[in-house]
Design a protein around this nucleic acid. Sequence first.
RNA 1: GCUCCCAUCGUCUAGAGGCCUAGGACGCGGCCCUCUCAAGGCUGAAACACGGGUUCGAAUCCCGUUGGGAGCGCCA
Length: 467
Amino acid sequence: MTVVTRFAPSPTGYLHIGGARTALFNYLYAKHTGGKFLLRIEDTDRARSTQPAIEAILDGLSWLGLKWGGDVVFQFARAARHREAVDQLIAAGKAYKCFCTPEELTAMREEQKAKGLPQRYDGRWRERNSSEAPVGAKYAVRLKAPLDGETVLEDLVQGQVTVANTQLDDMVLLRSDGNPTYMLSVVVDDHDMNITHVIRGDDHLTNAFRQIQLFRAMGWTPPLYGHIPLIHGADGAKLSKRHGALGVDAYRDMGFLPEALRNYLLRLSWGHGDDEIISDAQAIEWFDVTNVGRAAARFDMAKLTNLNGHYIREANDTRLVELLTPMITQRINNAIDETIAGRLIRGMAGLKQRAKTLIELADSAAFYARKRPLTVDDKARAILADDGKEFLSVALPQLEARANWSAPELEAWARTTAEAKGLKLGQVAQPIRVALSGSTVSPPVFEVMEVLGKDESLARIGDAIKA
RNA sequence: GCUCCCAUCGUCUAGAGGCCUAGGACGCGGCCCUCUCAAGGCUGAAACACGGGUUCGAAUCCCGUUGGGAGCGCCA
């Protein structure tokens, strides 16, 4: 049997971090087993589903590199099929019409709450005949769920979970406007799409029992379920859209790489020995739903950031420059021409080692792209003031005379010069760094000189002396 | 309130009865390296929620307590 998993978000907002992890787990499990990973948009809530949300979800998944197989299934488009299933159930006496009004149900719940009773539909229309309803009254269709016994779920991550059927009420299958509910649609779609493994957040755990009952009523075999723990915020509270759960696009904008986010999300509630840096190939090889832990994990920005630094260091220079180009353009007042692009490519090796996010990388790379004369920050200005300019004035002609402009040669020159003048290497390097970058922090200064080239380097040093 | 789930350093986790003096990672402190900042190396502080069992032996099994979480919609 081929494994078929699915990610089934409702398009009521962006793809948030918890959903992204659910998608990741489904994706990895499918890849691990050589199966398929499908995408279904659960848009049966017509009032809250939006096109921008659909696009945000698709974009988010694509950015994260989670490719789904086949066409996206839009649930609402299958409403006719869902109604057909309900007709079948009514015909078989396994579902019935409920003529309760919303007000009546609210009143029922309030009464139950007041009495300290569990809030559940009491089945008042379960055995009544439709003829007892007012003519033309609207009705919903409910499942005639078993009244006694228990429903057992062999959950892939939670283990065996049993619930007494008295805890489960007769859920609505069809709304009074004739539209299918989530419960109905999920079951019919999971069946029709041949889903074998449903991996989702454990907020759906109780839904699984209802869904299993529906599967049985339809005479179908339920899929296997794996309910993964939710992700909490740094404060331990539930991570929801209104509580710090950002969309994956927000992480992209904060300068995170998709592979870093993937690696980070993978390690939430799942681990493989002491491994921390896990490649996509290893993730596919090692991941199994049954190894997912049962405790909720907190989201830790610091660890994500650390991981991101690792992946930036490993990233291809050309790719980084491409990602950085719009960000750097925004920081400087000129376009990135070939000369500057060349500098960025050559400088990336030194730059990327020092950045934890693309934002930091862009900030630290901008000086390579800036036009002369550079603006010098306050700390840097102080270096020029303390004998810095004086040193640069002496060094400039020496540098002008140099034929070889490679980093090792320049460093050798700096060491000899420092020794001759009784200076520390830092006293030579810092003024040059300031002149070249406008800052006290940069990649190794001789590397910067090489990347900038002789002409630009000398010009910048000249600017610093004049400033 | 009812039902269900969970519980190892601050955080993510390893740990499937003796291998645990509880390991790794992030973060934090120190040292080294060093032209700045990083990276890297070494190193330190830091946890089995509590109470009972079971067992020769428990972080690991059982029960209870406490603390967290999820669900209880004609939302998904």
